[in-house]
């Protein structure tokens, strides 16, 4: 009389094998357009990047002569410095977004249901506003004879305009500004699902607010922190437009260098390819690292 029930849950979607084959074929047919498209316009281009990184640059194009010069140059101290700058910027942006975004996400998540949506819209409007316009608005705000300086002089805080535009500070400021919503939204979606009575339980058991935060809220929002950090860090690593429009040409970031090598004459496409692949390599390492970390934190929570 003893029988196992291991297949019971699949009861609903069990179909005969022939039908299963037919469905599989249908799935291939349905996904084929996107699949073919992505192979041609996503996978193959990367192959070309790899090929180009081993070629010789020409003023306007490439020469099909094998060479390792691109990699040799990419690893000289100047470019390693650029890479370091990019990483520093990305890390700083991520950390600042997290520090600034967490209380905001928490505040929205704990608001009443009706206010919640309104507050979210306030976060989302800048998110949907054109990137270049948001950057541009900061140029107006921070300019030497811009609004901020005007205001500060009028209040009497300063007598000479501050030079904020075209500094690293301006770059950081605008980076945080642009990427903040990417951090707040995933944090919010995790915090929103969190059971806040857990905090009361923790306090009931003797934890103060700070302990409750570090022992309950933070571990439970790990998923959102990972997702948000990923959404901020990765684009920040390849940022071009923000440093280009509000930064100076003394501190160059990877995105800028890659773009110059492609757009400016003399062109150096092998170099751009090599730098792109370096960036890709670091992103890949980072992703693997982050996912291992994430998996570990998750499995620890379960056990």
């Amino acid at each position: 009389m003893s029988k196992t029930y291991k297949h019971f849950q699949s009861e609903r979607d069990v179909i005969s094998q022939a039908a299963e084959k037919r469905r599989n074929l249908a799935s291939w047919a349905l996904t084929a357009p996107a699949l073919i498209w992505l192979i041609i316009f996503f996978l193959i281009p990367y192959l070309i990047v790899v090929i180009y990184s081993f070629l010789t640059p020409d003023i306007y194009d490439v020469k099909f002569e094998l060479s390792l010069d691109a990699y040799r140059q990419a690893f000289n101290p100047d470019y390693l410095m650029t890479l370091f700058q990019s990483f520093r910027l990305a890390i700083l942006t991520t950390v600042l977004c997290l520090l600034l975004g967490f209380p905001v996400a928490y505040f929205i998540a704990r608001a009443k249901d009706k206010t919640k949506n309104t507050l979210l819209v306030f976060i989302i409007i800048p998110f949907w506003t054109n990137l270049i316009i948001r950057i541009f608005s900061w140029r107006i705000f921070l300019a030497y004879n811009g609004v901020l300086n005007d205001m500060l002089i009028n209040i009497g805080l300063i007598s000479q305009p501050l030079e904020i535009m075209r500094t690293d500070l301006a770059v950081i400021l605008v980076m945080v500004y642009v990427y903040l919503p990417y951090m707040i939204l995933p944090l919010y979606s995790v915090l929103e699902k969190m059971d806040f009575t857990l905090l009361h339980a923790a306090m009931d058991l003797g934890a103060n607010e700070i302990k409750a935060f570090f022992r309950i809220t933070l571990p439970l929002s790990m998923e959102g922190i990972f997702a948000g950090s990923l959404l901020v860090f990765i684009p920040a690593l390849g940022a071009y437009l923000i440093p280009q429009l509000v930064g100076n040409q003394k501190t160059l970031y990877l995105g800028q260098v890659i773009t110059y090598k492609i757009k400016n004459i003399p062109r150096n496409w092998p170099m751009a390819s090599a730098l792109s692949l370096t960036l890709l390599f670091f992103v890949a390492i980072l992703l693997v690292l982050l996912f291992t970390l994430y998996k570990r934190s998750k499995s620890r929570r379960i056990t």
């Binding site: 029988k3 196992t4 029930y5 291991k6 297949h7 019971f8 699949s10 009861e11 069990v14």
Partner: peptide, 8 residues
Amino acid sequence: DFDGFVAV
């Protein structure tokens, strides 16, 4: 029979 499990 579902993949060897006899439901009915």
